[in-house]
């Protein structure tokens, strides 16, 4: 396949870095072959919140993430999909240096949050993780009251001037997470006493209480029923007005429903990134097409 320029999401001029990208459906109208592992689609955006350039991750000798370049825009929900072991969660964890906690893990390349390289040795990971919050697959409320679960972050980061201020942060966060009406009369009950969906929303409230710029979500609805999932998805839709959201999901329908852009990972390579509606109706790469239509994975 001939090499053509990668297009930017906002229609900006092309930028080609790292792996040489190939593209695009309307010009070529052909699908990149399975052997071609260069990223196709729209990997860069104007004025990104996060810019990743040539990111590699190694677990010991295992090359888990291969030379990935990808931007996350302001107020964007970007979904990462791919078969198990393709590196999407590993990549997500790079975005707030969660991989630092793994002994034999090495991350190379540049990851910038608002233009600042987060892998710089001078960067303190605690404020970084306040700026880039995370919600995990399994709800993990602290073994404390509902109130304390949300108040903990603002308190340790010194975000509240006094008790009234802290209360306001807690109430606002619970309201924004869509949980306030359900639990306003039982703030002193343990967070673990809530249902699965409520616990996950409590974790989201906890994440937004520290006023992050980006929220990372690693399969946030995989343990929830369809109603609780719909509530979380509605919440994501509202939160993206203020935050950038990066979500890893195994549910194609969820990626299609909630995200603006979708990125497809395969064996550590970023195969394709594009507008979600295009990815799910007319993907460029053969591997993307095979995966989303249930032919591989």
């Amino acid at each position: 396949m001939s090499i053509v320029l990668e297009k930017q999401w906002n229609g900006d001029n092309a930028r080609t870095k790292g792996k040489e990208p190939v593209s695009t459906p309307e010009q070529t109208n052909s699908i990149a072959s399975c052997e071609d592992r260069r990223t196709v689609g729209i990997a860069t955006v104007n004025n990104p919140r996060i810019r990743c350039v040539d990111v590699n991750v190694y677990y010991g000798n295992k090359h888990a993430i291969k030379n990935i370049s990808l931007d996350v825009a302001h107020n964007e929900i970007i979904a990462m999909i791919g078969p198990s072991g393709c590196g999407k969660s590993t990549f997500l964890r790079c975005l707030n240096r969660m991989n630092d906690t793994i002994d034999n893990c090495t991350v190379t390349g540049k990851i910038e949050l608002d233009g600042q390289n987060i892998n710089d040795k001078s960067i303190d990971v605690v404020p970084l993780r306040a700026r880039v919050g995370m919600v995990f697959q399994k709800p993990n409320p602290f073994p404390k009251s509902i109130y304390e679960n949300v108040a903990f972050g603002p308190r340790i980061h010194g975000l509240a001037k006094d008790k009234t201020d802290l209360e306001e942060i807690v109430v606002t966060s619970l309201q924004r997470a869509g949980l306030w009406r359900e639990i306003k009369d039982c703030l002193n009950q343990p967070g673990t006493s809530l249902s699965g969906g409520q616990q996950q929303r409590l974790c989201i409230a906890r994440a937004i209480a520290i006023n992050p710029e980006v929220i990372l979500m690693d399969e946030p609805c995989s343990a929830l029923d369809p109603i609780a999932t719909a509530v979380i998805e509605n919440l994501m839709n509202e939160l993206c007005c203020d935050y950038s959201i990066v979500i890893v999901t195994h549910s194609m329908q969820q990626a299609a429903r909630v995200s603006h852009r979708t990125a497809y990972f395969h064996l550590g390579d970023l195969i394709e990134v594009g507008k979600t509606e295009q990815m799910f109706t007319n993907p460029i790469h053969q591997l993307t097409s095979d995966y989303i239509t249930g032919r591989i994975g």
Binding site: Q253, S289, T293
Partner: peptide, 9 residues
């Protein structure tokens, strides 16, 4: 089936 891409087309 929740078909997508070429299946949906």
């Amino acid at each position: 089936r929740g078909a997508v891409a070429r299946d949906l087309r």
